[in-house]
């Protein structure tokens, strides 16, 4: 579904990503693990075209997408749930969700998607009219995921959905992400929370200091000595 080959990104003289190659298979959840500052967010931002001018190639559904504008890439069926939720705070939950489906002009489809998101997060349905600036971190994360889902993406990339959330809420969010995968959306997850990510994903990559240093089935990574020591604290 998504294939990245030799992706390199620099900020000025500082090289942040160096020859990254990986792929995301359809219908499953792939995760990219790594510590703070490894370049995880930069990776997603370059795939979605928010950071232009990168070296390397990116294929999405057999199309080369590097160099395209963000809205064009989104139109192909990719979306990203950005780190820190990035909601439009002065707007209501419902408005945030509806604007996630900006490109869909058929109001029936928008309504269908909306009721699907509300089924997924019943909590949000009760407070549609509330302004997003007043929500808790967990609720904001749900709106952010819901907003991404509104465009019916084929691939949904998530940047640290567990960040700053209480363990109980993290579990709730990940239950929803699993349902999203079951409903047919492929997920690429970027996480520092290794334990949660590996138990939800099927395949994983490890990104350290701008390069992929390890990859494998999630179950195998969980048993790996390096992962255990460096990420799981075992």
């Amino acid at each position: 579904m998504l294939r990245v080959e030799g992706l390199s990104v620099s900020y000025g003289d500082a090289r942040v990503l160096e020859g990254i190659s990986f792929q995301v298979k359809p219908g499953a959840m792939t995760c990219i693990l790594g510590p703070n500052g490894a370049g995880k967010t930069t990776l997603l931002r370059s795939i979605t075209g928010i950071i232009p001018s990168v070296v390397g190639k990116v294929w999405f559904l057999d199309q080369e997408i590097q160099g395209k504008k963000t809205h064009q890439i989104v139109e192909l069926g990719m979306t990203m749930i950005p780190e820190g939720r990035r909601l439009w705070a002065p707007l209501s939950i419902q408005e945030n969700l509806e604007l996630g489906a900006y490109r869909i002009s058929d109001q029936r489809i928008v309504k269908e998607r909306l009721s699907w998101v509300y089924d997924l997060f019943p909590h949000l349905a009760e407070r549609k009219g509330q302004l997003c600036g007043t929500l808790s971190g967990g609720e904001q994360q749900m709106v952010s995921i819901g907003r991404g889902l509104m465009a019916s993406p084929k691939l949904m990339m998530m940047d640290e959905p567990s960040l700053g959330l209480a363990p109980l809420i993290v579990r709730e969010v990940f239950e929803a992400i699993k349902k999203i995968v079951l409903a047919g959306t492929t997920v690429l997850l970027i996480e520092q929370n290794t334990k949660v990510a590996l138990s939800a994903a099927q395949y994983g990559y490890v990104l350290e200091r701008g390069a992929i240093v390890m990859e494998g089935e999630a179950a195998a990574l969980q048993e790996d000595v390096h992962i255990k020591q460096a990420y799981l604290g075992l």
């Binding site: 928010i50 963000t70 989104v74 990035r86 909601l87 439009w88 002065p90 604007l99 996630g100 900006y102």
Partner: peptide, 16 residues
């Protein structure tokens, strides 16, 4: 309005 509030988030929702 949302482009003014958060440009990246707007682009990620498919807004040019």
């Amino acid at each position: 309005r949302i482009t003014a509030i958060d440009r990246d988030a707007a682009a990620l929702s498919g807004i040019n």
